[in-house]
Design a protein around this nucleic acid. Structure first.
Length: 109
DNA sequence: GCAATGACTGGTA
DNA sequence: TTACCAGCCATTG
């Protein structure tokens, strides 16, 4: 009872997808999370599984807050992500193409 | 039930 | 700095 009740109405979503989407939806503005970090917060699976969920259900969550471990945004949407980071004031590196994971990485608090 | 896939990661050269 | 290799595990066909 009292199973998780995310706002994604996960009726047809796999269990793991539901957990991943819920975590991503919890990321505050101006912060980002790496695929591996999400997997760790979820407590199961790995970065590949998070990426697989994003490819299928990424449109349901702020996917631009999910980046690689080195601070690079998804290669398929880097331009749109860069615009979102600017709007959210996400800490970026001097080059402006990568994120400063040192300050932008959300610790889950 | 089995095999292949994939918006990844970390280490080494 | 970039490039390549092997491991990782849930989902899909």
């Amino acid at each position: 009872m009292a199973d998780v009740a995310p706002e994604h109405a996960a009726a047809d979503l796999p269990r793991y997808a539901e957990l991943v989407l819920d975590v991503i939806d919890t990321i505050p503005p101006g912060r980002v999370l790496a695929y591996g970090d999400i997997a760790e917060l979820v407590g199961e699976g790995g970065p590949r599984q998070v990426g697989a969920v994003m490819s299928r259900y990424g449109s349901l969550v702020p996917w631009w807050r999910v980046v690689h471990a080195d601070g690079s945004p998804p290669v398929c949407h880097d331009a749109q992500a860069a615009a979102a980071y600017r709007a959210e004031r996400t800490p970026m590196r001097p080059d402006g193409t990568r994120i400063d994971m040192r300050r932008a990485r959300w610790d889950g608090r």
